[in-house]
Amino acid sequence: MKWVFVLLFVACAVHVHLRGRVRHRLGRQLLDHSTFMAPINVLMYAFSRVPTTPFLDDPGRHFPELEPLRANWPAIRDEARRLRELQHIKAADGYTDVGFNSFFRRGWKRFYLKWYDDAHPSAAQLCPVTTGLLRDIPSVKAAMFTELPPGSELRPHRDPYAGSLRLHLGLETPNDEGCFIEVDGQRYSWRDGQWTMFDETFIHRARNDTQSNRIILFCDVERPLRLAPVRAINRFVARHLIAAGASPNVEGDRTGGFNRLFKHFYALRLKAKGLRERNQSLYYGLKYTAVALVAAFIVWI
């Protein structure tokens, strides 16, 4: 029975790696968080009630409850502009955003509206229109304003969990082909008042090669699933695992358990980076030895 589970895990990990046209190098994929989430992600794909393609055409047809967001985009944009003027759309203060920490180094910024919970107190105070709209759409599990300034980029990556789909609603964009996101090699350029939805577990990247700023409303929308037990699994993982990634905008907002631990983990990561700079052979030798030991332990138990 143990070997059945091992083989199932390997099969799911291989499926996740080969899914789509764009793939990570095998060495990177072995250590990617999506590999460890592969069995549950394959379950999400298998029972999805919407297509499992990189982009989902016409989000409003699949998710009619989202239409108030598009209908009220000018009011949402006004609140986002006000936040930018106040410099609240920004990188995290310290190491309090494990999910997006690497993005800040290349210019990306954010302001959380909600994260698998009700609105942050700061968001409810500063963005009453947007948080009010989101409160009436329970399928939106997470939302934020995100900014991609001129010259910024997000390197190729995939998100770890397939229990949601990602919605981008253009608020203040360059309206130019030079500002784009690519999902599994398919390119989309943001436009004011227009939206797109995609599966963030495909490898994707973004760039702003224009001279204008880009601000969007970014939402994670619960994936519609067949069968009540599968929906229950998705909500359990979201409530007890994904929700632990909550990150504050200001003091007084909730910080999830993962982010409370992140600063301690990052101190170790900095030491590992220092070792990599001094001795790459030793660094990668230790790294892959650790992976092999973990795999051996799993097989042994």
Rank of each mutant, 00 (worst) to 15 (best):
P64D: 11
G185H: 08
L268E: 15
F297G: 15
C179Y: 00
T53V: 14
P59Y: 03
K141C: 14
I233L: 06
Y284P: 03
F111M: 09
H33A: 15
R226S: 15
K2S: 14
L225W: 01
R106M: 06
L8K: 10
T173L: 11
Q280N: 11
D220R: 02
D184N: 10
S102L: 15
T35D: 00
R239C: 05
L282C: 14
F104C: 10
F258H: 13
T53L: 11
L217Q: 01
L165N: 06
F258Y: 14
P128K: 06
R110L: 13
E182I: 02
A80H: 03
F47K: 07
N208W: 01
G245L: 04
F180W: 13
N208V: 00
F297D: 10
A238W: 05
L171V: 13
R191A: 11
W115A: 05
P68L: 07
R223A: 03
N175P: 07
P54R: 02
E200W: 09
D118M: 14
R166K: 11
L169S: 06
A142C: 03
C12H: 03
L133D: 00
L286S: 05
N72C: 14
N213D: 03
P68C: 09
R260M: 06
M44L: 08
L167D: 05
F5K: 04
F5H: 10
Q29F: 15
F104P: 01
L268S: 04
C219N: 05
R214W: 00
K114S: 08
D93T: 12
A295G: 10
P59D: 13
G107A: 12
F202W: 03
F145N: 06
R278Q: 15
F103A: 08
H17W: 08
Y112W: 04
R135H: 07
P54D: 12
G99W: 04
L30F: 08
C127E: 06
P39Y: 02
Y45I: 01
M144I: 03
R28H: 09
P138I: 10
F297I: 05
G20Q: 10
T52Y: 00
F63V: 02
G257K: 05
H168Y: 15
G27C: 11
E85Y: 14
V183A: 05
W195Y: 13
Y288A: 08
A295W: 13
V129H: 05
I216A: 02
G185A: 11
D118F: 12
A119E: 07
A11Q: 13
V22G: 00
P128V: 09
R82F: 09
S152M: 04
N101C: 15
S139E: 15
A292Q: 11
F36Q: 14
Q125N: 04
R23T: 03
Y266C: 00
G132V: 13
R19K: 12
N249K: 03
R278I: 00
V183Q: 01
T130A: 09
R231N: 12
R191Q: 08
W73H: 07
M144P: 01
L30E: 01
R81V: 09
Q211W: 10
S34C: 05
R77Q: 12
R155M: 13
V42H: 03
G60R: 15
V4M: 09
K2D: 15
H88G: 12
G256M: 02
M37N: 07
D136V: 08
